[in-house]
Amino acid sequence: MEQIKNDILDYLKNNSFMEREKTIDDSDSLTQNGILDSIGLLELIDYICERYSIEIPEDMLTPENFDSLRGITNLITRLAK
């Protein structure tokens, strides 16, 4: 879990509007804090699918699964099994 979270955090620091020095809580909203927009989210989804060799059905592309570090980490853990 921790490994996945750090991996996503690294991705966000390199590819999103998140400032490097900034820290975010696991449950902070990525869209409302201006870290990801709709295009950024799609790029993140592509990255996750490739990195973890998983497919994410459209129905799962929801705020519960993608708007926070916790949501994303949980989703990957569930789907990568």
Binding site: D37, S38, L41, D59, M60, L61, T62, P63
Partner: peptide, 24 residues
């Protein structure tokens, strides 16, 4: 909003007759 695709498609399926979008 266009942020999360799942809810956007559900919104359209709720009986939308006219959808508006920019090309992207």
């Amino acid at each position: 909003t266009m942020n999360f695709i799942g809810p956007v498609f559900s919104l359209i399926e709720s009986g939308v007759s006219i959808f508006y979008g920019v090309p992207s």
